[in-house]
Design a protein around this nucleic acid. Structure first.
Lengths: 221, 221
DNA sequence: TGGAGGGATATTGTATGCAATTCATCTATA
DNA sequence: TATAGATGAATTGCATACAATATCCCTCCA
């Protein structure tokens, strides 16, 4: 059974190149000249150009007019800004969720939070990471603002490569779960300021533990 | 004296096409086929394609794979989401400004706010609109997070076409100025929650007056 | 009359060649 | 030796031709 991939070559290039950037085949600062990429991926320069522009708009590469593209070098300051912006956005979503979630959404959030407990007991970092994404996404959705949710989710995914080891730190799982608990409690309470503060604290703590260091390492290349 | 424009054709197309969209030469939903655009602007399809993709990433057009591009139809709900997201982002910048602005930034903001008073007295809507942008931009900068500032400014500019008549409403100028005053006072007081609330209120009020109606009209085409 | 199928047409996706610009290297001169 | 200028190679920007896909319209059948 042949599942044909009806994406265009440029679409696939976006995935392939970003993968190669994220797993280190291309390091920050590396030149990405169109001809080499075209040969490497077996296509012509045209879709390569398109893919590079798209990657630029997502922040992964930097195109300088007439001077070619390079893998974006994210400085430590820029990375801190991105993490900071994400924390604020997440906190805003939490605040709006506290104000506006429907009773059904609140019940679902509570139930989902409870369902994460076994993963903590089992120290299942991978399972928890997956559930964590769902948890946060529920809160984006609870803000009832698709654009805000999109921005926030986009930023989260952009920062994903800098957070790989997130739940490996010993003791991080139960702490994260407890912080989630504070967020959930505030949202269920319709406590806007509390939800904002709890989420801001949660996201900042997660970032502040040791993946900042990992990130810094990644930046230095 | 010839000031040559060293922008690439695609760069110019981005400006030209977005202008033509914003002033109504192309209406929402109109097809933007590459050949017609190429002929219209006297270039080949290649830079047209690039411009269309870039406009898509900024939300002005919508490209459907293999099915061409159309001028984005912003629904009323989507527009409300965009305004809502902007309000939240602006409020967040205000909150961070209250917390983190340097003394110099605070003095500048206060001085700039004072300098807007004459424009209100003179009922200079155009001058006020220009100063208004500067005022808000100062607050984006005061958040000390370049990425957040960029997102917020981007959203503001994207919404600009839906806010043309902003300060024409009778009485809007003094009211806006008063609302700015509340924001400035809270920021100078380092009152995070107050700054957030004041800015949220300000932006929401501005939007809620009558340009939502203008926007709805624009959407209906 | 209404809908399904099929072929012509129009439009997008991709490859390639040429023009324009940048970059690197080498030379000449102070 | 260091710097400015020039020259050639490498690379991007753009145009055009071809291939793949979608769209439209016509015919045919129930």
């Amino acid at each position: 059974m042949d599942i044909v991939d009806d994406r265009t070559r440029a679409d696939r290039l976006v995935s392939d190149v970003s993968e190669d950037i994220l797993n280190g085949a291309f390091a920050p600062g590396d030149r990405l000249d169109e001809l080499s990429l075209a040969e490497r991926y077996g296509v012509s320069r045209t879709p390569v150009r398109e893919a590079l522009r798209r990657l630029a708009s997502s922040g992964l590469v930097e195109v300088r007019p007439r001077r070619g593209a390079i893998v974006a070098r994210i400085t430590a300051e820029k990375l801190a800004e991105l993490f900071g912006a994400m924390a604020e956005l997440e906190a805003t979503c939490a605040r709006l969720s506290a104000i506006g979630m429907t009773p059904m959404e609140r019940r679902r959030l509570e139930a989902f939070y409870a369902s994460m407990e076994p993963l903590v007991s089992a120290a299942d970092a991978e399972g928890f990471a997956a559930a964590n994404l769902v948890f946060h996404t529920q809160i984006y959705a609870g803000a009832h603002n698709g654009h805000l949710a999109e921005i926030t989710a986009g930023l989260r995914s952009r920062l994903l490569p800098y957070r790989c080891a997130q739940f490996r730190t010993p003791g991080r799982l139960p702490r994260s779960h407890a912080e989630h608990g504070a967020v959930v409690a505030a949202i269920l309470d319709a406590d806007a300021a509390g939800a904002h503060a709890a989420m801001l604290r949660h996201v900042s703590l997660v970032e502040d533990s040791f993946e900042r260091l990992a990130a810094a390492r990644a930046v230095r290349g």
